[in-house]
């Protein structure tokens, strides 16, 4: 069955795009990072407040760009709050795409995963010494994830 792209811009995505969750800035974030999608110039900043127990208390994003990148960042912020750093280490690109609940083509996955890339880098930096021998997240994030068989 062919993918109906109208589904891409469904209520879930458009609601997050128009009324984003936690768009803005945290006064004193534990960590913060900004990244650009060179393809289209989308920019997302992700800020996390992590408590001493290693749990994400607050997640905020700010940015400019297409509906997919901005809605995805909003959905991401909603998802990560209350999660521990350990849990988020296990959070994969595939899980992020599943959260979006819409089929993304390989070229648009770059938009949908922009906030996720930031999250992985921020989480990676929480325990750099433990990750010494593992692959840096950015090495694994450039390959599109097949999700055309989402149904």
């Amino acid at each position: 069955m062919s993918t109906q792209l109208d589904d891409l811009y469904n209520d879930h995505i458009l609601d997050h795009f128009e009324c984003p969750y936690h768009k803005g800035a945290i006064d004193h974030p534990s960590c913060s990072r900004t990244e650009k999608n060179p393809l289209c110039g989308d920019v997302v900043t992700l800020q996390l407040q992590i408590n001493p127990e290693g749990k994400v208390e607050n997640a905020y994003f700010d940015g400019k760009g297409c509906a997919i990148s901005q809605a995805a960042a909003s959905i991401l912020c909603e998802h990560v709050e209350g999660k521990s750093v350990d849990e988020l280490e296990k959070f994969q690109a595939r899980d992020m795409l599943d959260l979006l609940k819409v089929p993304l083509t390989a070229s648009r996955q770059k938009c949908g995963l922009l906030g996720f890339r930031l999250l992985k880098t921020l989480i990676y930096e929480q325990h750099p010494e433990e990750n010494e021998h593992s692959v840096s997240p950015s090495d694994t994030l450039n390959t599109p994830v097949s999700n055309t068989d989402n149904e």
Partner: peptide
């Protein structure tokens, strides 16, 4: 309407 959303649509 971001150009990328437009092109996709």
């Amino acid at each position: 309407l971001h150009p990328h959303d437009l092109a996709t649509l």
